[in-house]
Write a protein that binds this DNA or RNA. Structure first.
Length: 491
RNA sequence: CGGGGUGUAGCGCAGCCCGGUUAGCGCGCGUCGUUCGGGACGACGAGGCCGGAGGUUCGAAUCCUCUCACCCCGACCA
């Protein structure tokens, strides 16, 4: 059992921080607002990257890399875009240091001032569209389907590990198309990729929809998103896909000669997910015993803990454990054998429970004698004795079960945490006492949304795709509404 | 950036009000022994410029001023 560790009930945000730190995912760095992603946390991100990268490639995209620095002037070219990011940009003004003439230490060399300041990218639309201008002349050059894995910087006031840090890792896709239809199709395709990834790899069910004008990406015509529900009833935006229209093409003068010989601005999309997904993973599945990882994203799917007393037993048991490890690895399962003699089995049990390893195998002298193993699964904490024979099939099945069970549990949670509200009182009551997603009518205006946000902290998370039309009255103003939208308090 | 809080050993804390031996405790760490199927136990041991800078004082972890960092609550956001 995990002692000296917060429960979700006691203090949800402390519970979250405890998991991040004690499971060795990340820690705060010497730099304000920036975290160090530790090997175990980074390994999870690498698993995410690998899965996503394959999905991007399978949908025709290629990776490329653009500079981390963006000339200041680029930012001012798309009005809404500047507006959206201006308040959180880190700016490079000088390029040299020198020894402090007045004493010890080092100071900025004022003589080394940049003619034009450089912005540390908060996102790369501007530098990319400035580059695409030179890549596009004819419809034959389209589409451009590029993704970049990168770090970005957004100078946040308040940070939380993985969920919001000043620097974070992400991928940003940037595509250029000849027609509006094709760009919209791309935007929706990538939204589907994200939803697919969230559900099938992260085991987190997501709602798909579009953002209201207030929540839209700065510079986008339409922002699509996937939205997940965390265990404390707050929503988390897990990915966004933007239809940028011709906004950036016009701002950066990206034109192509169409098949008909006319000169047209290209149509654009951008889409991204970040290391925030690691935070989502933690908050969606973990329990009061620590992290719980879905098998498809767990750095180690299985850990083997040998149990022994004498040196003879140790040799015997560890040898058998190695054999099992090889067997499982051959079947494509990632297995860690912890044969350290410096920690006791009980200690290791707790350690791996805390780190969320989906399946634990314990093997002792009795097992070697009987041809058995003890299996423990992290999601249910159940233990059972199984036969060594056919271990690959047993483990494979268990990993699949765990993956499915996590998804099912998360889905059930979301379903019982999704409410309809038809009156303002009902709406407030659900927000304050239950949390979760609230389906309610809204009159469609930014003013109303803003007022609701000011009074309740709840925002419109999304307008569901393929929403079923339904006549009703706005929860706040009573004005007519033709559909319900999804409200929640969010991260 | 506003309001509140905290900085003392790797981690978690006590001591501070009311200044005065060698600054404690738990966990962790090292050595040795007994242990090992759910966080073992004993013995011995190492580890501190009390966040930083100034000041008050015979004397500062303790009082005063400034500063830096982190946490919580607001405004902003993936």
């Amino acid at each position: 059992m995990a002692k000296d560790f917060s429960t979700r009930e006691e203090n949800y945000s402390k519970w979250y921080n405890d998991i991040v730190q004690r499971a060795g995912l990340a820690e705060n760095s010497a730099v304000r607002g920036c975290m160090v992603i530790k090997p175990y946390g980074y390994a999870i991100w690498e698993k995410m990257q690998a899965a996503l990268d394959k999905m991007f490639k399978d949908t025709g995209h290629s990776n490329a890399y653009f500079p981390i620095f963006i000339p200041k002037s680029f930012f001012s070219k798309e009005a809404a875009h500047v507006e959206g990011f201006a308040k959180e940009c880190a700016v490079v003004t000088h390029y040299r240091l020198k020894n402090d003439p007045d004493g010890k230490g080092i100071v900025v060399d004022e003589d080394a001032k940049l003619e034009e300041e450089l912005i540390v990218r908060p996102t790369s639309e501007t530098i990319i569209w400035d580059t695409y201008r030179n890549w596009v002349q004819s419809y034959r050059d389209l589409p451009i389907l590029i993704n970049q894995w990168a770090n970005v910087v957004r100078w946040e006031m308040r940070t939380r590990m993985f969920l919001r840090t000043a620097e974070f890792l992400w991928q940003e896709g940037h595509t250029a198309h000849a027609t509006r239809e094709e760009a919209v199709e791309e935007t929706e395709r990538m939204l589907d990729v994200y939803a697919d990834f969230a559900e099938n790899f992260m085991a987190i069910p997501v709602l798909k929809g579009t953002k209201s004008a207030n929540e839209r990406f700065a510079g986008a015509v339409e922002t699509y998103c996937i939205e997940a529900l965390m265990q404390d009833g707050k929503a988390l935006q897990a990915g966004t896909s933007h239809f940028l229209g011709q906004n950036f093409a016009k701002a950066f003068d990206v034109k192509f000669a169409s098949q008909e010989g006319t000169l047209e601005h290209v149509w654009a999309t951008s889409w991204g997910v970040s290391t925030r997904l690691v935070g989502a993973l933690i908050m969606a599945h973990s329990d009061d015993h620590g992290l719980v990882l879905p098998p498809k994203l767990a750095p180690n799917q299985v850990v083997i803990v040998p149990i022994y007393k004498s040196a003879d037993q140790q040799n015997l048991v560890v040898e058998k454990a190695r054999e099992i490890q090889r067997q499982l690895q051959k079947a494509g399962i990632s297995v860690k054998l912890d044969d350290r003699d410096t920690y006791k089995p009980g200690w290791k049990f707790n350690e791996y429970e805390f780190k969320g390893v989906p399946v634990r195998i314990a093997i002792g002298p009795r097992d070697v004698e009987n041809g058995t193993l003890e299996l423990a699964r992290r999601d249910t904490l159940q233990k059972e004795i199984i036969q060594m024979k056919g271990i690959e099939q047993t483990i494979e099945k268990m990993l699949n079960d765990i993956q499915e069970n996590l998804y099912r549990k998360a889905l059930e949670f979301r379903e019982r945490s999704t409410y309809k509200a038809d009156t303002w009182d009902e709406f407030i009551d659900i927000l304050d006492n239950k949390g979760g997603f609230i389906l309610a009518h809204w009159d469609g205006t930014a003013e109303t949304e803003q007022k609701i946000k000011e009074e309740t902290k709840a925002t419109i998370r999304l307008i569901p795709l393929n929403n079923i039309p339904e006549e009703g009255k706005c929860i706040f103003t009573g004005k007519p509404s033709s559909q319900r939208v999804v409200f929640a308090r969010a991260y």
